[in-house]
Amino acid sequence: MKVACITGVTGFLGSHMARSLVRRGWEVHGLKRSTSDLSRLRDVAEHVTFHDVDRESLDRLFDVRAPDAVIHLATTYGRQDEPPSQVVATNVVFPLALLERAVRSGVGMFVNAANTYTLDYKYLQSYTLSKQHFTEWGRLLTPSSMRFVNLRLYHPYGPGDHPSKFVPQIIRTCRASDADILLTPGEQRKDFLYVQDFVTAVHTLLDGPERLPEGFVTLDCGSGRAVSIREFVETIHRVTGSCSELRFGALPYRENEIMLSQADPAALRALGWEPQVSLEQGIKNILQEDFGRD
């Protein structure tokens, strides 16, 4: 049985990844805090071995048996006014210690969910800088015996995401309100990727490591299609049957708003991966799983 170690296992991405690995017969070890909420994993928690990183050393995980793969999904965005030191501790110091231990133990693959923002976007500067920092450490420290996949993940969405995120927030507003919904002009174009398509992308990497170059490599993980925020919101509005009025242009853009964010998934596609879930189907899945309706 192959062994995977997932950071951020109780989060949006981590819970979907853990559930899929368990169903495929992997032994899953999840790194979390002692205070983490396990509700996203209630159906598979008994099949996951949890390690509280604030209470035990990483050595306990690696000394018994080193995992075949580490999947690093934990992150802090700084949206809750966390100081830069806390953002760096989560996004640089912790994964760096994990990478060092993985290298010493001969782990074959380290998958890092990487950032796609630039420092021009000031609302997430601490997050962006810290993620870029760890990426460079990965480039520096990865030996030829390991495959470090720096997976640049574009705008994942799906069931179980935090209610404050853009997609669940818009769905909830469209469902619950007949009042006007104030929006920017909505010309920003983003590459939205359904969470299960992200999971299958990681499986593609895990199932065929020999097809990847040795050492450090960066791959884009996205659909390759950027849709406007206006189109995306209008799709949610239609699928939810909302009676609210969408007032595009009622709000200004943020300073240095990112107007185009689009992946180039050619390298992943060359490995046999293809995204399968359309925007409309993804929204319907969220409605069914998070809101209990078709």
Rank of each mutant, 00 (worst) to 15 (best):
S15N: 07
R42Q: 14
L31D: 04
V48A: 07
E27L: 14
V44M: 12
H51P: 04
G14T: 13
R55S: 13
L41H: 03
M17D: 04
S34E: 06
V44K: 02
T35A: 08
L21R: 00
L21A: 08
F50K: 00
L13Y: 01
S20L: 09
V53R: 02
G14R: 04
K32L: 13
F50N: 03
L21H: 03
S36E: 11
S36N: 06
E27P: 00
S20V: 08
W26E: 07
A45S: 11
R19P: 00
K32G: 08
V44Y: 03
H51L: 13
V53P: 00
R42V: 15
R55Y: 11
V48C: 09
S34D: 06
S20W: 05
V48K: 01
D54K: 02
G30R: 07
V53L: 12
G14E: 12
D37T: 04
E56M: 06
R24H: 12
V22K: 00
W26F: 08
S15H: 02
L38G: 06
L41Y: 01
F12Y: 05
R40F: 11
H47Q: 13
S34M: 07
S20F: 09
M17Q: 10
L38K: 01
T49G: 10
R33M: 15
V22N: 04
T49P: 01
G11Q: 02
H29G: 09
S39G: 09
S34T: 05
V44C: 06
D52A: 14
S36Q: 06
G25W: 06
V48D: 04
G11Y: 02
D43F: 09
D54I: 13
V28R: 01
G25K: 04
V28H: 01
E46L: 11
S15Y: 02
S15P: 00
R55V: 14
T49M: 13
F12W: 02
R23F: 13
S15V: 13
R19E: 15
G14P: 01
E46D: 15
H51S: 13
R40T: 10
M17I: 13
K32W: 03
D43S: 12
A18I: 10
S20C: 13
R33H: 14
L13C: 08
L31K: 00
E46M: 08
G14V: 14
E56G: 04
H16W: 11
F12E: 04
T49R: 07
S15Q: 05
R40K: 10
A18H: 01
G11D: 05
A18D: 05
R23D: 15
A45L: 12
V44W: 01
F12P: 00
L13I: 11
F12A: 05
R23L: 14
S20I: 09
A18V: 05
E27K: 03
D43Q: 10
L21E: 04
G25Y: 05
L31I: 14
V28Q: 05
F50T: 04
L41P: 00
E56I: 06
S36M: 11
L21Q: 01
R33F: 13
R55T: 15
A45R: 05
D52V: 06
D54M: 12
V44F: 08
V48L: 12
A18P: 02
R40L: 15
S34N: 07
R40A: 15
R19M: 12
A45C: 11
S15K: 00
L38S: 06
D37Y: 02
L21P: 00
D52Y: 09
S36V: 12
